[in-house]
Design a protein around this nucleic acid. Structure first.
Lengths: 147, 147
DNA sequence: ACACTAATTGTAACAATTATAAATTAATAA
DNA sequence: TTATTAATTTATAATTGTTACAATTAGTGT
């Protein structure tokens, strides 16, 4: 099924007139296959084996292209570097403040808040972003043992 | 009433054992008084007149101190630099994707989603973050005129 | 007013990201 | 298939936001 995701993504590129290069193919493949939400540098390092000559700039350029086409979402948390997430269906992120782990979860029907906010502020609403911060089970265990 | 905010903030510093310096006083005052959500550099530039010798490092240091004490929230959007928001009561942000304007709005009862997410992921939940993106009224006007 | 310690300053370092220009390569049509 | 053209990659330099550091300065409790 990640196969079809990749195929869909490539189709999107084709219809949008974005050339499909081996580097783009590899970046997309990696983004889809990994369960993590990698930084640009992590992607760069992960593909170093396959593409010894690839430049970091290529990773950044293509992540921007993917974002513009809507294939990829850029996540900016407090820390230094952005993380990138292949867009499938809508989901939110639960983030461990201890170890940085990110877990996806689904939650339907936050559209009402978009409505509400639109009414209150007079904005046209395009999208929203929600993250929840906490402590993951394994970090809870660790801190329990320490005490 | 922004007077009491400032006084409360200073009290918080005192009880937390954080020294009250003129620079800290001025940064807090500026954060409370401005309706915007300034970057560290904007704060630095705004106080340049009063403190010609103040270092950027001082601004960053103190914003970190304020964050650790809970007086200030750091907002990281897609763009390069963090923005800082004096913490009053809980509110969310509506952000114009066209001009970057940020408008605060209140919305009660998003605790249920914290509960839900906690159940689903097994995390202990500490906080959440929500932003809504759209186009502000004045940017709507401009784009209407162009067409 | 004194001493103690934290805070400020100026600067250098760092790390993420972007700009640039030259070399390469994918898509297209002949 | 090949030539053409414009997009893409690459390598590197530049930029920018932020932090680290060491020396100086200044709050605070006594």
């Amino acid at each position: 099924m990640s196969e079809t995701h990749l195929q869909d993504a490539l189709d999107t590129l084709k219809t949008t007139g974005v050339r499909i290069t081996p580097q783009r193919h590899a970046i997309l493949e990696y983004l889809i296959q990994t369960m993590a939400h990698p930084t640009a540098d992590e992607i760069y390092k992960a593909l170093e084996g396959k593409f010894p000559n690839m430049s970091v700039a290529t990773v950044y350029n293509n992540l921007r292209v993917f974002r513009e086409v809507g294939l990829v979402k850029e996540l900016t948390f407090g820390d230094a570097s952005s993380r990138f997430d292949f867009v499938t269906n809508d989901h939110y992120h639960m983030i461990c403040e201890c170890c940085g782990k990110i877990v996806d979860f689904h939650y339907p029907g936050l559209d009402e808040i978009e409505h509400f906010a639109s009414q209150v502020t007079g904005f046209d609403v395009h999208a929203h972003r929600l993250e929840i911060y906490g402590t993951c089970p394994s970090c809870k265990d660790v801190s329990a043992k320490v005490q």
